[in-house]
Amino acid sequence: MALMRCDEELIQLYVDGVLHPAEAALVEAHLQECRACRRQAGFYKSLYWDLGRAAGLAPEPPQEPEALADLLLAEHRRGEEPEAPPATTWDFATLWLRANPAFTRPARAVSSLGHIGAEGLRRAEGLREGLRRPGKWPRWLWRKGGG
């Protein structure tokens, strides 16, 4: 009694634990009688397990922690200066994040920007060439602007 055809996506979702219990029961019944899908399920179980540990394969950060901490302290002090620099004005991505209640305290001045979202990011990208302080940005942000 074939309740379900072989369906790789369902097998993936089943192993991922995101199926509704009724759907999961159908997949389980199918797995009982289908060797090929059992193999697939076994593969995906192994794959997910390994993917969960794949971060360990990325290299160590090359930058000295002390140097980064000093840079951040300097950035903080620069932000405290009475004459605020213009860089953050253009920084829509951060403004959007700051305006997002999931991350920030409510009732900030920037909240009037609302959910700029993707549009804000695109605008921030478009304004890239107008950045006055390219040195503060990663190379890839101003490379094409000729900075």
């Binding site: 920084d91 951060t94 991350f103 305290r105």
Partner: peptide, 15 residues
């Protein structure tokens, strides 16, 4: 580096 710089700039508004 940019992630941390932005975090520092936003530090006053973080919950």
């Amino acid at each position: 580096q940019e992630v941390f710089l932005r975090t520092v700039r936003a530090i006053d508004s973080l919950d």
